[in-house]
Design a protein around this nucleic acid. Structure first.
Length: 658
DNA sequence: GGGCGGA
């Protein structure tokens, strides 16, 4: 992985090597509690590179400041890496190089490290510039038993000094709505199912409590066994894609900086070697994609026995048809402690009811939190839907791209993200565009990891301002400066649509999303229309017609595709959830009540929701009372759009749902 | 259809 450019890190890593300080504990070390680890700091300072924000990656289009160093970075080739070329502390292997990790001991000039976070002129810093006005309109709703009181500042949350310092270094001024609510909930030890928008600080919302919790308690995190060693992480964060795992890892590392909490990431497509070495050095918080994690567990390199925190990012994705068996295996069939013995945090922007019901298997007495769409600011993403026949798509795309080319701002070509349905289609479109004078590159799951990361990198820095992507890039990825998202192939579900368009309009900047719609997409028309209306978008007449037709088709597609009122609704409110006696809820009681914001009244009497029944016929959900009020203590609402180099917030005002 | 392990 090397999704970020790391001029500083390379320098620092070099410098770290020169330190005489021994490497962190190899196997079988005597235990050192977290707060005593890495207390020293003899080394040069450094700066965290902003992730993909162009801190050091410049481009022909001018994003970023420094020079683009295509060469020396981790060319994840299958040629190198594995053999541990360069040996010991020596040079970086030419092949796979894990994110050049700053050796924490090497730092003492922390400020220098964080000074480099934001480098582009004109960028806002931290969340200072976030349009908090937009927050005030966000409906927030929390349901469950004894909902903890939200916090209005980071200060009133006891995250510990180290984390507080890092929050300051990140220049987070105040928590976003999801953070205000989710962090106290998580800090209270409660399980959580949270719907939150893209960039609303979701990653931080689960990372802060996890890091804090890991630091609070000392445990052995690695021990030897007959076959070598086994890592015992205390927290596990799962992601549906490698690139997202990488991104989360980088965020988490920043938050955990100098805390002593060790973060590691494992995912497929990269040689095991470096990842194993990272694990061997000890890991408290493990970020992973499911496949590689299972692999490592089966090799006894990872045990989940000590897991106290489990977070699923893009949780609805993780629990849908394709991923659910793997997740179930990891969570239920390995050595992971059961619900109640661990804390489980599920985050996503979209949470279909079926998935919520599934997810109940993994939770105990959880709180359902939803941070709704920003009504007044979703229009920051202008959504266009155009009727285009399949045969005309390319031509149409050309027109849009040419238009885009004329619209460059400040000499920078706007980034355009083109979503297609298939990997083959992505390749074809990439080729066609390239041959016809459009600088395009594709990313999809059939490319080797090196190519995937290269594509993302070249796109981010503007060298190749057109990225053709499958849904591998639709969720969670923070790609700044995407001016235009084009749904070349209309997505299969409205949730996918929401995630895809959420790649633009970030950082409070305006974004454009254009979708090509044809007859075969008709089943989604109604949901699309509802979504657009909700986002205050102008709906073309022909699309309205389609939507009405789909009504008469009788299929109840719309119900499941539509995003209910504001995106999330606690299924436990459905009477049938507990009802339908055949499902074996002996202990179930209570339907649901919602606690809204500071009102801590909601209650659920049940404990865990062992769910094994079928929910084919879910009830119609009554809309819940929502709360649009101001959050306690929310006063400094002003601000302009901001973009944190930590990928936080940027879309809170944009209406994406991540 | 897409994404999730390597051998």
């Amino acid at each position: 992985m090397s999704l970020r450019t790391m001029a500083w890190a390379e320098a620092v890593t070099e410098s770290a090597r020169k330190q005489t300080r021994p490497l962190p504990p190899p196997r079988n070390t005597t235990y050192l509690p977290p707060h005593l680890r890495y207390s020293g700091g003899g080394g040069d300072g450094g700066g965290y590179s902003s992730y993909g924000r162009g801190s050091s990656e410049s481009t022909q289009y001018g994003f970023g400041g420094g020079g683009y160093r295509g060469g020396g970075r981790s060319g994840p080739g299958r040629d190198g890496g594995r053999g541990g070329r360069g040996g010991g502390g020596g040079g970086r292997s030419r092949g796979w190089v894990q994110t050049p990790r700053p050796n924490r001991e090497a730092f003492h000039d922390v400020s220098g490290k964080f000074e480099q976070l934001k480098v582009r002129e004109g960028d806002d810093v931290g969340n200072v510039g976030i349009n908090f006005d937009a927050y005030e309109d966000i409906p927030v709703e929390a349901s469950g038993e004894d909902v903890p009181v939200p916090a209005s500042t980071f200060g009133e949350i006891d995250l510990g000094e180290c984390l507080n310092n890092n929050i300051k270094r990140c220049r987070y001024v105040k928590p976003t709505p999801v953070q205000r609510h989710a962090i106290p909930i998580a800090m209270a030890g409660r399980d959580l199912m949270a719907c939150a928008q893209t960039g609303s600080g979701k990653t931080a919302a689960f990372c802060f409590p996890i890091i804090s919790g890991v630091l609070a308690k000392c445990v052995e995190r690695s021990q030897s066994n007959g076959d070598g060693w086994t890592a015992f992480p205390r927290a596990l964060i799962l992601s549906p894609t490698r690139e997202l795992a990488s991104q989360i890892f980088e965020e988490a590392e920043k938050f955990a900086y100098q805390s002593g909490a060790k973060v590691a990431v494992v995912y497929g497509g990269a040689p095991m070697g470096q990842q194993l070495r990272d694990l061997e050095r000890g890991v408290d918080i493990l970020v992973a994609t499911p496949g590689r994690l299972v692999d490592m567990i089966e090799r006894s390199r990872v045990s989940l026995k000590m897991i106290k925190y489990l977070a699923l990012d893009e949780a609805d994705r993780m629990l849908d048809m394709g991923f659910e068996p793997q997740i179930r295996k990891i969570v239920q069939r390995m050595d992971m402690p059961p619900p109640g013995a661990r804390q489980t945090l599920l985050f996503s922007a979209t949470f279909p009811h079926e998935i919520q019901r599934l997810a109940a298997d993994f939770l105990k007495n959880y709180i359902f939190l939803t941070v709704g769409r920003v009504g007044s600011s979703t229009d920051l993403i202008a959504q266009k839907v155009e009727f285009v026949r399949d045969m005309d798509k390319i031509e149409h795309l050309c027109g849009l791209l040419k238009n885009q080319r004329d619209n460059e701002t400040h000499g920078k070509l706007a980034l355009t993200l083109v979503f297609v349905e298939t990997k083959k289609g992505a390749n074809q479109l990439e080729n066609w565009l390239s041959r016809n004078g459009f600088p395009a590159i594709a990313i999809h799951g059939d490319k080797v990891q090196m190519e995937r990361e290269r594509a993302l990198r070249l796109f981010k820095c503007g060298t190749t301002p057109i990225l053709v992507a499958t849904d591998v890039a639709s969720r969670g990825l923070d790609i700044p400066h995407v001016a235009h998202v084009i749904n070349f192939d209309f997505p299969k579900s409205i949730d996918d649509y929401v995630h895809r368009i959420g790649r633009t309009g970030r950082a409070g900047k305006s974004g454009l999303a254009t979708a090509f719609f044809s007859e075969k997409n008709q089943p989604l028309a109604k949901a699309l229309v509802e979504l657009m209306k909700e986002s205050k978008q102008e709906v073309p007449n022909w699309l309205n017609d389609y939507a009405e037709q789909s009504l008469s088709y009788g299929g109840d597609q719309s119900q499941r595709y539509s995003s209910s009122n504001f995106g999330g609704y606690d299924v436990r409110r459905s009477e049938n959830y507990y009802g339908s006696g055949s499902n074996g809820y002996g202990d179930s009681s209570v339907g649901a009540a919602a606690a809204t914001c500071n009102d801590v009244s909601g209650s659920y009497a049940t404990g865990s929701f062992g769910y094994g029944g079928n929910y084919g016929n879910s009830s119609v959900d009554e809309p819940a009372a929502s709360y649009n009020g101001s959050y306690g203590g929310e006063t400094d609402a002003a601000g302009t759009a901001g973009s944190s180099s930590f990928g936080n917030y940027e879309n809170i005002v944009a209406g994406g749902w991540d």
